[in-house]
């Protein structure tokens, strides 16, 4: 498949996922802060921006952290390239450039989501609370994924869409875990710590799934283990990266077991993401608890970002490499 087309599909999918993730994190916090004391608000909203990694940009726009500013920044501030509205527009722009490669249903759905976001009455949303808007975006994203699975040929293009989604999702789960885990760790065990763990799980739609694993106690180590290593929950990092590897193998034309048998034929994304998966598979969670969590997650995030660069170099920037010249460009779109 054409590199340009693969690139657009991959980023279309990442942007939709990003919009959904940011929306979900916002929703959960809105909810949890309804019964929190006012002075706690500042402390509660600041980490949300930390999750998106846009703190510097936020401080350029706003003085203080509160519900109104943070939601505005994350939803539609034009100076925030990761704002939900921007993500949806960029997803649509990418889809538009490969309009003929995706199904009409996918295009129609994304188009509808775009107009919904664009035409939203912002004053009304501020007055009546943004729940309905949040819901529409999340349902829009789910519908998009369902429609994609049911109306598009499951070929290379589909795998690039899956890959983009999984890369973005693993990134967001790690960031959420990083920020929230640190917050919980500052608290002594008690109702407040449990509350924070629930918020963390809900931010990843993982509360019920976690409960079903039989974990009777809400304990930070257990939660971290679940969000990092679970192989069955679709937002757990382990699940995401394994799925991403499956897509990369399929795109590369070398299926799973063959890949292990012919290591010399592996491309960089396969190697790198395979190594991360193996590291997670053999990880002892005790080794990374408490103060070791942040450095570990930081390192993991960095490695996943490097995989992103490898994907770009291997699949999107196909070019003639003349002897004596090194490859340069990496991810072109907004990380």
């Amino acid at each position: 498949m054409l590199s340009r087309v693969a690139d657009a599909l991959y980023w279309m999918s990442r942007y939709v996922e990003r919009a959904e993730d940011i929306t979900r994190i916002l929703t959960v916090n809105f909810h949890s802060l309804l019964d929190a004391p006012v002075e706690a608000a500042e402390a509660a909203w600041q980490p949300i921006i930390a999750i998106t990694g846009d703190e510097e940009r936020y401080r350029q726009c706003y003085q203080e952290y509160n519900a109104r500013n943070v939601s505005e920044f994350l939803l539609w501030n034009p100076h925030n390239p990761n704002a939900v509205t921007t993500c949806i527009s960029l997803a649509r722009e990418n889809a538009r450039s490969v309009r003929e490669q995706i199904s009409s249903e996918m295009w129609e759905n994304l188009n509808r989501l775009y107009f919904l976001v664009r035409d939203l009455d912002r004053d009304e949303a501020r007055r009546s609370g943004p729940y309905e808007f949040f819901d529409q975006i999340r349902y829009g994203s789910w519908a998009f994924q369902g429609i994609t699975a049911e109306t598009m040929t499951h070929g290379d293009g589909y795998e690039f869409i899956q890959l983009g989604k999984m890369m973005e999702r693993s990134d967001k789960t790690i960031r959420t875990l990083d920020v929230k885990y640190a917050a919980v760790n500052q608290l002594t065990e008690g109702p407040e710590a449990s509350l924070q763990l629930i918020v963390l799980l809900r931010s990843c739609s993982a509360f019920e799934a976690f409960r079903k694993t039989g974990a009777s106690v809400l304990q930070s180590g257990r939660v971290a283990q679940f969000l990092l290593l679970d192989q069955e929950f679709p937002r757990a990092v382990g699940f995401c990266l394994n799925r991403a590897l499956r897509s990369i193998n399929s795109i590369s034309g070398i299926a799973g077991s063959d890949a292990v048998r012919q290591p010399h034929q592996l491309n960089n994304p396969q190697r790198q993401i395979g190594r991360i998966c193996a590291d997670l598979d053999y990880l002892n969670i005790e080794e990374i608890l408490d103060h070791r969590m942040h450095p570990f997650l930081d390192g993991l995030l960095l490695r996943i970002n490097l995989v992103g660069d490898d994907i770009t170099r291997t699949f999107f920037n196909t070019q003639v490499i003349l002897p004596g010249r090194s490859q340069q460009p990496a991810q072109q779109q907004q990380q």
Binding site: L2, S3, I251, S252, G253, V320
Partner: peptide, 23 residues
């Protein structure tokens, strides 16, 4: 295939499309 200019590359006087599996 429908291609744009940036999908094509000329090397050694031959034209190629850039695909996810090479030229």
């Amino acid at each position: 295939e429908i291609v744009e200019g940036r999908d094509l590359v000329v090397h050694d006087n031959h034209v190629y499309t850039r695909t996810t599996r090479g030229l």
